[in-house]
Simulated assay, not measured.
Amino acid sequence: LIVDFSDNGLGVDLEKFSSDAIFELGITNKRGGSGIGLNTIKETMKRELKGDIVFLGNGLHYERGATFRLTFR
């Protein structure tokens, strides 16, 4: 099963972060953020769901915002 998820937020700042780095623990672009969100999702997908999450790009389904692909095996 493959699920693409898009939002209409600011997207991922690709000048500041690589598409792989955004899943590292502690990486955040929010003031006061902890940087655990995407890391927790990635680890949960791998460990508990035998799947994965990847960043596909910005502005793919909306004028702005990020799109992620969740793959469940």
Rank of each mutant, 00 (worst) to 15 (best):
N29L: 01
L56H: 07
T71P: 05
A21S: 06
A66I: 01
L70G: 02
K42E: 14
R73S: 11
G57V: 07
N58D: 06
K16P: 03
G51I: 08
F23R: 04
G33Q: 07
L25R: 12
T40F: 01
F55P: 04
T40I: 13
E15R: 15
G26I: 05
L38N: 05
F5S: 05
E24Y: 03
T71E: 14
L56N: 04
G26L: 07
T44M: 12
N8T: 07
L25C: 08
I36N: 01
K30C: 15
G57Q: 07
F68H: 13
S18H: 10
N58F: 00
T40D: 12
R69Q: 08
F17R: 08
F17L: 12
T71C: 11
I41E: 08
L25Q: 09
E24D: 08
F23E: 08
D4G: 03
F72V: 14
L14F: 05
I27P: 03
L49A: 12
I36F: 04
E43N: 14
L49H: 00
G26T: 06
R47E: 13
L1D: 06
L56S: 05
E48D: 11
I41T: 15
L1F: 06
I22N: 02
S18K: 04
G35V: 01
D20V: 00
D13M: 02
R64K: 15
F72L: 15
S19Y: 13
I53K: 10
L38C: 09
G57P: 04
L56W: 13
E43D: 14
T28Q: 08
L38E: 04
L10I: 11
K46L: 14
A66C: 05
H61E: 06
G11P: 07
T40S: 15
A21Y: 09
R64M: 09
